[in-house]
């Protein structure tokens, strides 16, 4: 199967994944206890107001009919109205998604870069002190949840050593750039506002690090393990025998194949960063979609819940397709359909 057909097939299958996801989340959101209309209006609201809201949201219809109306709306970009923000959910997604995307993107960069570096170092110096230090760091990084790290970072850089901003996306004295993409770093670069870019970048460091630590060290361990395994392979001994420089062996013959298992896990982890960002967003006062989604769940904001899950679902599917492509690039057996 050529690459184009492979991508098309994955995209086609993804449609079914998303349909399945939408049905599951639609049902789950509705079986959670509580009448969303009554929740939104409070116990004191007169019944006519509750009935009116139920009618507006089609809650007075059977579930399949509700699902039909919802899908009909989604297909034309209408995700319904949020009971929390009292406006179109599509507007909420537009506003909150870029903040989380920006955060997850920087966290993903940390994951990719540092996991490869640390994994490589650990493999290269296996069973030496470098390996031991990285191993201890890895156990700590994986075991400590992101929100605990977030609180630690906040305490460290908010009180003890305030060298880096800890809250929000921009400092209060910095004027935000005009919204073009919603990604402040990108918008500030587009508009040439370097002070805003620099400030936004600094604000991203701590939440992204807190978010990245777990996956970063997990992947570092996988890279180390794969590299250690490959070191004992015959082809590597042959490469050494041919007198290929050790740097080339390291990069081309050892690191590249060793990345395959790590990249597969990395894809899942990077896609999960968005969903895991909730507490980190709360602690760093980061106005992202993860926090919005969690608030929506607590308030049974049906349209918002469905929209956030679908958005996460789409991102998860896309990231996994990208990861599969990277794996296919790294592993010719996959790229060429096992013809190697």
């Amino acid at each position: 199967m050529n690459l184009r057909a492979y991508i098309l097939k994955r995209l086609f299958l993804s449609i079914f994944v998303l349909i399945g996801l939408s049905i599951v989340i639609f049902i789950i959101a509705r079986v959670v206890p509580g009448d969303p209309a009554r929740m939104a209006l409070g116990p004191r609201a007169p019944q006519y107001a509750v009935d009116q809201l139920r009618q507006e949201m089609n809650l007075d219809q059977p579930l399949p009919t509700q699902y039909y109306y919802w899908v009909k709306g989604v297909l034309v970009g209408d995700l319904g109205k949020s009971l929390t923000t009292k406006r179109a959910v599509a507007d909420d997604v537009k506003e909150f998604l870029p903040a989380t995307l920006e955060l997850a993107f920087i966290a993903a960069i940390f994951v990719v870069i540092f996991s490869i570096i640390l994994g490589t170092l650990a493999a290269k110096y296996r069973n030496k002190w470098v390996d031991t230090v990285i191993r201890v760091m890895a156990y700590t990084g994986v075991a400590v949840p992101a929100f605990v790290l977030a609180v630690l970072f906040l305490l460290l850089f908010g009180y003890i050593w305030p060298v880096i901003p800890v809250l929000g996306r921009l400092s209060p004295e910095i004027m935000p750039p005009p919204t073009i993409t919603g990604l402040i770093t990108v918008d500030s670069l587009i508009t040439g506002d370097l002070s805003a870019f620099w400030d936004a970048l600094k604000h991203l460091i701590l939440p992204a690090l807190a978010l990245a630590m777990g996956p970063l060290f997990q992947e570092a361990r996988i890279v180390r393990s794969a590299m250690t395994d490959n070191m004992s392979k015959d082809y590597l001994a042959a490469a050494v025998g041919y007198g290929i420089p050790s740097s080339v062996i390291m990069r081309k013959y050892l690191l590249k194949p060793s990345l395959i298992p790590a990249v597969s896990v990395m894809g899942l982890d990077i896609a999960s960063l968005m969903g895991n960002a909730f507490l980190v967003e709360v602690i760093f006062n980061w106005p992202g979609i993860s926090r919005y989604g969690m608030e929506a769940m607590l308030r049974k904001d049906l349209n918002a819940i469905s929209a956030v899950i679908i958005v996460f679902g789409v991102i998860f599917v896309l990231v996994n397709i990208i990861v599969d492509l990277i794996v296919a690039y790294l592993d010719p057996r996959i790229r060429l359909g096992g013809k190697v």
């Binding site: 570096i117 490589t120 290269k124 305030p162 880096i164 600094k202 460091i205």
Partner: peptide
């Protein structure tokens, strides 16, 4: 060795870049 130097240099550059990004403007935040 050359490899070792290369690896350590990469790590060092990244660490410095990170610190610079983090510490730049520290005075302002102090």
């Amino acid at each position: 060795s050359k490899n070792k130097k290369w690896t350590l240099a990469t790590v060092l550059v990244l660490m410095v870049a990170l610190l610079l990004t983090g510490c730049g403007g520290g005075k302002e935040n102090n």
